[in-house]
Simulated scan of single mutants.
Amino acid sequence: MKKLCFGTFATILKKCMAKRVTQKRLCGTMLLSIAPTYDISGEDGTVSDLILGKKIYHP
């Protein structure tokens, strides 16, 4: 079984979602489903870093 990094997974999901869903909302929702206290919805830099694989998620 192959594994995807978070950025690749989020990019694939974004391409399948409605155009009105932003990357920030998508990433924020994905992370909140794993760690309810980790809200990144207001952090543009963090979302960008996660999508580009620059930042590793540590709740």
Rank of each mutant, 00 (worst) to 15 (best):
Y57C: 12
G53Q: 07
Y57W: 12
I51Y: 00
I34K: 10
Y38V: 03
I34N: 06
T8S: 14
G53N: 07
L50K: 02
A10L: 11
T29Y: 12
S41G: 14
D39R: 07
L31C: 05
K19G: 00
G53P: 05
I34E: 12
C16Q: 15
K55T: 13
K14T: 06
S41Y: 13
K55I: 03
T29G: 08
D44K: 13
K15T: 13
V21Q: 10
K14S: 09
C5Y: 13
A35M: 05
A18R: 05
M1C: 07
G42R: 08
E43D: 14
L26A: 01
M17I: 02
P36E: 08
G53D: 09
K14P: 02
T8V: 11
Q23W: 08
Y57G: 02
K24R: 15
I56K: 08
S48C: 06
S48M: 02
L4N: 11
I40E: 10
M1R: 12
C27W: 00
Y38W: 07
E43M: 08
A35G: 02
T22D: 05
G42Y: 03
K24D: 09
V21H: 04
S48R: 04
A18G: 07
L4E: 05
F9G: 03
L32G: 00
L52N: 14
Q23N: 10
K14D: 02
K3M: 11
R25I: 10
F6R: 01
A35N: 09
K14L: 09
L50G: 01
G7Y: 04
Y57E: 06
S33I: 04
T22L: 03
I56Y: 12
G42C: 07
C5V: 12
Y38H: 06
K3Y: 10
A10D: 06
F6K: 03
C16N: 15
I34Y: 08
C5E: 15
G45P: 04
E43S: 11
T8Q: 15
R20C: 11
L13D: 00
F9T: 03
K54M: 12
V47H: 00
K3S: 07
I34L: 11
K15L: 09
L26N: 00
G45N: 07
